[in-house]
């Protein structure tokens, strides 16, 4: 593990403060600009905002871990021991979000690219249109109709 000289340390301290501060201000600027608070009626697309703010936050995280937490100057095996789980964590987060409907079943999007309509939400939905046992509602062996007798 290498020890920093006083000059290097001050450069990281002051440089880090300025960098993190500026990046935070840029992130907040993107958020406020994109939601219409700075210029009346102006909107940035969700993708642009998300991409910008997430990558800026990842950069802040990179700087804090590498320089403030000193990981850049540590042994490579420690970097691997920590880096690899983080990479698969990012995979896990994305996988869980997609599985949880974050992309395909999202409702907050203003653009209607495609919509998933659940069977029970269809306009002419009645109980019999929900397949309970693999048969559809037009099946004459439907137990609800049989119960009529």
């Amino acid at each position: 593990m290498t020890t920093l000289t006083a000059k290097q340390a001050n450069k990281i301290a002051l440089g880090g403060f300025v960098l993190l501060g500026v990046v935070t201000l840029v992130e907040v600027f993107i958020a406020l600009l994109g939601k219409g608070y700075l210029i009346e009626g102006f909107h940035l697309s969700t993708w642009v905002m998300y991409l910008g703010m997430i990558s800026l936050s990842l950069y802040k995280a990179y700087y804090i871990v590498m320089y403030f937490m000193h990981l850049k100057f540590e042994d490579l095996s420690l970097k691997y021991a920590l880096g690899f789980p983080i990479i698969i964590l990012i995979w896990a987060v994305i996988a869980f979000l997609v599985d949880g409907g974050w992309y395909y079943e999202r409702k907050m999007s203003e653009k209607v690219g495609f919509e998933i309509i659940l069977p029970e939400d269809r306009p002419n939905a009645t109980e019999s249109t929900i397949p309970l046992n693999g048969h559809n509602g037009n099946d004459s062996h439907n137990s609800k109709e049989n119960a009529h007798h």
């Binding site: 964590l89 987060v93 979000l97 409907g101 999202r106 907050m108």
Partner: peptide, 19 residues
């Protein structure tokens, strides 16, 4: 970090499911 990631992704999934 894993703990907080779990909480934050639960937030993400729930938030996007509700108009």
């Amino acid at each position: 970090a894993f703990t907080f990631s779990g909480l934050l992704l639960a937030y993400g999934a729930l938030r996007m499911s509700n108009d």
